[in-house]
Design a protein around this nucleic acid. Structure first.
Lengths: 132, 132
DNA sequence: ATCGGTGCAAAGGTTTTGCAGGCGG
DNA sequence: CCGCCTGCAAAACCTTTGCACCGAT
């Protein structure tokens, strides 16, 4: 994607601002609802298009945790995610440099070049542990 | 899921047989096309239902590699997957016990209980490396 | 005979896209 | 002005589901 020829539209600005306000890793639809409070006429398609551009240009992360829908994250520095199997919440897991370690383990195990490693966790979050 | 009260229908048998014939990690639709050569009247819904039952009962794996569709694998023993970013092919990566190692790294880094770790790789497969 | 499974088609949920008009640089 | 972007709506895509009938046990 060509990130030089993108324009700073107000809609894109608000989408990114609202994404930065939360740590809940919203879906496109959830973010659409949040953005609509400020821009009642924005369309869901515009939210999708802007999330696509923002994540392609390094200003957001697109997450797929196997739920059948994507989530988005304004925190672009390396970290992992844990999805709670009880309440569905997605929380951040602090970064430890697993990627390089994994690549070292797998290196030489086949004739392919690894460009990225996806790691995510499933488990039970702090709150759901307390409830039980 | 209740795996005791399942019946051995011919459709389910053929779905599993066709899945076992390939290492290409087919999607439900791709498997539907393969099965249809033997059972021209089978429906896509039946393929989905059987893949759901087979994976829930440990006879197949359901994979989500972030493509917006699920893939299926008759190899249920532990291994990883690499999706080629050039040709889209999914190939097996031999198992090394990354899961436990990762859990050891992350253990104690937050108040949550990890129940599973998903790891998958993106990269370039042998054939596409040669082409370049 | 029971009750899980099937085929068909419709519906469901998420994401993409065609189009005409709007606006940022 | 140019051409990227927007809103709207339809479509695309993958998957699930309701229904009546079928067939495995």
């Amino acid at each position: 994607m060509d990130c030089e020829n993108t324009r700073n539209t107000y809609q894109r600005k608000v989408v990114l601002e609202e994404l930065k306000k939360t740590t809940a890793h919203p879906t496109a639809d959830e973010l659409y609802e949040a953005v609509r409070k400020r821009l009642p006429n924005i369309s869901l398609g515009t939210v999708y298009r802007n999330l696509e551009i923002l994540s392609a240009c390094g200003q957001a992360l697109k997450l797929d945790l196997g739920e059948g829908k994507k989530r988005f994250d304004a925190t672009t520095k390396p970290h992992y995610h844990l999805r709670c199997i009880k309440c569905g919440k997605v929380i951040d897991v602090p970064y430890v440099p697993l990627d390089k370690e994994i690549e070292n383990h797998v290196k030489g195990m086949g004739n392919f070049k690894i460009t990225s490693v996806q790691v995510h966790f499933e488990g039970i979050c702090e709150e759901c542990l307390k409830k039980k």
